[in-house]
Amino acid sequence: MQAKTVERTLIAIGVAFIALMLILPLVTILVYALRQGWEPFMDAITNDYAIKALNLTLLATAITLIVNTGFGLFAAWTITKFRFRGKQVLTTLIDIPFSISPIIAGLVFIMVFGRIGWAYPFLDAWDIKIVFAVPGIVLATIFVTFPFVSRELIPLMQAQGNEEEEAAALMGARWFHIFRKVTFPHIKWGLMYGVILCTARALGEFGAVSVVSGHLRGKTNTLPLHVEILFNEFRLTAAFSVASILVIIAIVILILRNIVEYKLKQEES
């Protein structure tokens, strides 16, 4: 009887908290976005700057995904399949982006590639722009999200051990064949999960990107930055309309994530 009461109370608190902290704000965004009707909403999201910002966000996310999936696979493979000195250090280093503030990550890029950075003279000589340009945004996004994939893969690959790969190698299989036939089937859902987390974070990244972007409308504005600008200009309806794009993408990702999580669980049993 008492246990039942405790259980119900806890569930109620949980539901209330989620409703208050997550669902209410999300619904608010959609309500505000559509407050003045369909047309202002469509205007806001088909606005030239909004579309450019969306494109930039998608571009940065796409490059980030390619780079970080590659890096994540490589790092996880190296850490779990070989023995070498400094492995522990490498594992710790990979986690750095999780433990430092994105603002600091952004500042690091300014300090390296910006006007006061040590790489600036070289970049200037070759006429390469990184800070306050698209490459800076991409770099910052990559930096902030690079642990996601390897973090998912390392425990999976560690649990699998090396023996299947060794067995395959003994029979003369080349590494790519081994990867495709032995390693990949084992990690594919974990990889997918890492990629999805990475996507979600890359799409929404604000802090680091904000520092290196320079906020040039139509040039270096990502979708989250665009929302901020609109908001600061008190164009609330437009700000919420654009924000709702991010919300919808987030919901799609959430659904994908749940599907993949389900698959991962199935795989385990």
């Binding site: 023996e163 067995a167 029979m171 003369g172 032995v182 084992h186």
Partner: peptide
């Protein structure tokens, strides 16, 4: 791979997929 050896691992290491 060129030594002409067959190896049976302790935990079999069968390809589980």
């Amino acid at each position: 791979a060129q030594r002409g050896i067959g190896f049976v691992f302790q935990n079999y290491a069968l390809f589980r997929y």
